[in-house]
Each structure stands twice: as structure tokens, then as C-alpha cells.
Design a protein around this nucleic acid. Sequence first.
DNA 1: TATTCCGAGTGATGCCGGTCACTTTCGGCG
DNA 2: CGCCGAAAGTGACCGGCATCACTCGGAATA
Lengths: 235, 235
Amino acid sequence: MLLMKSKYLAADVPMFAGLPPAVQAFLDRALVWRRFRAGDEIIDRQSETRDVFFVAEGKVRVVIYSVSGREVTLDDIGPGGHFGELAALDGEPRSASVMAVEPALISSLGDEAFRKVATENPAMALSVMRRLATVVRTSSNRILDLSTLGANNRVHAEVLRLARVAVKRPDGSAAISPIPVHSDLASRVSTTRETAARVMGDLSRQDILKREKSALVVLDIAKLATLVEDVRGDF
Amino acid sequence: MLLMKSKYLAADVPMFAGLPPAVQAFLDRALVWRRFRAGDEIIDRQSETRDVFFVAEGKVRVVIYSVSGREVTLDDIGPGGHFGELAALDGEPRSASVMAVEPALISSLGDEAFRKVATENPAMALSVMRRLATVVRTSSNRILDLSTLGANNRVHAEVLRLARVAVKRPDGSAAISPIPVHSDLASRVSTTRETAARVMGDLSRQDILKREKSALVVLDIAKLATLVEDVRGDF
DNA sequence: TATTCCGAGTGATGCCGGTCACTTTCGGCG
DNA sequence: CGCCGAAAGTGACCGGCATCACTCGGAATA
């Protein structure tokens, strides 16, 4: 949570990297850098702030809580990503809360400065739009999953997603590391910890999955894929 | 489906209205105007087109189909709205299908032209971003609903949403017109026609709702709101 | 006016998965 | 090395709601 001005610069933020020097200089004056510890809250839902945040190091999580206590994870954002644009763009209250899940170094920018920079620099405008576009795509897919898949198939789908981006081993299996905590998994596909655990157990018993010391190994990605596609059906 | 060039101009599209004359002239050359009949498909999911569409008249519906036959409605777009930006921005395939639900007059723009206009004109950039921002907000809310509410509460929530934008009558009730078809309602909140019908029946029996000749009248908006909030709990 | 369709309304059935309530395992840490 | 809290694993229960299978009304069409 300590301030460390003028140690980090706008050029360190990927999204700003290609901007004209004059704009970067402007940003260097406007950006505020902060460190957060794991667990710290960065944005509180319903708060009236409008700043935009850029993740330089670490990882943050976007969540919505329902008062019934349920926690719905919307997204995880790592280095190079940004969040908080919605409120800055439309002036509405925050739509979700954001917390650091790892120690994080983050810079923030006031909404006016953000709108100015984002609309007056074509390259920047395009990356903001692209980012929003992928968020929309992700959300639509999730809505589709929630609408058409049962809870355990959603867990299948999520493990499959993790496997696809994980490091592949020579034998074709994928090592997911660190091992995702069941309750996080559950929150990401809107089900319960128990259901996630049961599904993972089933997958082990079918030799699709193996839990190792510090990695979750998907032994048979193809078979896992069929489990999902048999129900989803399409494409 | 008839072409009628040079009858409609860029200035007729709200999003282009404030642009410099030179840009509008450019757009007048680039825009292609078309009419669609109700039921016509405008974008097919998975197709490789990248154009952006602007609705001048009529209404279109954004849907995703699962091969199990289930139809998930993502959004309805009316005059002044646009769609198809995702593919134009990120070059990925279409994420959803779009069809006209009313006879519609629509102009389309190639992806390159769109990116050029949208990034080089600050006002345009801002409205594209704003539009994307509201789509993200809507999607997040829907994910939250799907994750925390039961099927009948989702129907309650949807009727409430409709009531809030409907014309209010002197006695405080809201007249929703035209009467939404149950299966459309169901598709918008990801449930079945039968469930929607049962919930609507219950609401009538509780005197919260009344079906008139050509409007659905919500007699007690407050009571309906409590039905939703009792479960959603929050704020 | 008879015919056809599409939307609405409803009962019966079955099962998925959320909830509760434990036990077991694991990874630090004093 | 044993303690403790967090995560994982599992069984039992049962309620919500999707599914199936009809009937009914009303509006358009022949």
C-alpha cells in the first residue's frame, strides 16, 4: 500500500506503450501507483469512484456478491490488463467488486483523463474496445453455459478451459498449476464447492484427471472434451 | 431486401449525426442500406462476415442457439442501436446470430471503415465504448440472476424490468404493450415456456398482474419488487 | 362458418444438484 | 512433532423445475 511515484512510468503499462511521448508525459503526471496485498479490496461495488485501474504485476479478481452470501466470480485479470472502465465510460456506479488475489502493483487514472486518452488516441481506443469486446464474448459464453449446461458439465467445461491454456506435457497431457481451489472453481461456474469436488472425483475415477503434488494433470483432454460436447452438442 | 441507396444518409444514423461533414460523406459512400422482413436472418453465428450494422427502423434480436434446440435471447435492439461490432473489432467469428423480429431498415459498414471511423473520431469512439459498456453491464446482471435466482424469480425480475420501462397509468400501474409472448419471456431468462406461464398465472392470482385485451398490466409494482428482492436480498 | 395453428394454461413425473452435516487429509507453524 | 485451520471428499435428503403430454381459446385463413 506504499506509494512509489516516478519509479514506474506510463511506458510500463502495455496499453500505453505505443502512445506519443507527449501523451505518456501527461499520463506520468496523472497515474497513481499503488501496491495491494492479497485479499485487499480495490473497488467496492456500488461505490461512487470512477477511476480506471491497470494491472502491472499480480492478479486481481472481479466478483459480485449476492447477499445470500454467494460469490460469483466474473473474471481474473493479470499483468497488462485493466478494469474499472465501465464506470469511467458511462458514469454509472460500479457493477462489481474487485480484490487482489495476489500481491499486486496497480496504477489508476481518473475517469476524465481516461476518456480523454482513450478517445483521442486511435490505438488506445482500439485496445479499449477490443478489451470490452472480449469481455462481452466471455460473458455471452458464460450465459450460454449457464442456460444450457448442467452444473457438472459446467465444471467439465471449466476444467477443459484451464487445460487448454495450461502447459502441455510431452505425452499430450496438460498440467494445470497451481491447482485451483475447488471453491474458486465452483464460484467461477456458479455451482457449489461440493458439486465441484464430486465432479473432480468422478473425473479422477475415469482416469481423465490426476491430482499430483503441485499440479492438476488432465490426462485425456479429448475425452474431457467429449463430456462437454455431448451435451453442448454444437460445433 | 430491396436496395435503396442515397435515399437514406449517414446523418439518419444517430451515432453518426454529430460527425464532421467529411466523415459523413465518407460514410455515405461506405454504408449499404437494406430492408429485412420479420424473421429474416441478418447475421449467422459462426459466419465469417465482419460488418457492423446500424438499426434505423424496426427491431432485431440477438440470439444464441444450442443444438439441443434451446434458444437463448441475449438482447433486442431497436432504432438507433447497432450490432456486430465484436467481430469487426477483434476479427473473431460472430458470437451470436441476429434476426429481425420486426420489419427493419438497416445500414451496414465494413469492418475496416468502422474501425477507422470509430477510432479516429473521439465522439464516435465514446459512443461505441458506451454501448459496449452497457452490454457488459447487462450481461453481468444476467449472469448474476442466473447464478443466484431461481427460475420463477427470474421471470419476476423480467416482468419487473418490463414494467419499469412501460407506460405508467394514472393509478400507478404499468401497462406493458404489446403483451410479451411467454416463450420469448422464457428465452430471455433462460427457462421454459411452461414455467413462464405458471409464474404469470400465479401473479394474476395474487392480483399483481392482469391480462387485458392488448396490454399486460402490472397492478402492484411494489409487491412484485419485493418478490424479487426477498430472494436477491441486496441493496 | 369451419379449419388450422399458435399461444396459453395445467397436471404428473422424475431427477439434478443445492443444502446440511460430517469425516478425512493436508500444509504450515509454534 | 503434534496442533489447527483450511480444503477436500462423501453420504442423505428433498425441493425446484425441466420434461412430457394434453386441453383450451382465439385469431387468422380458407
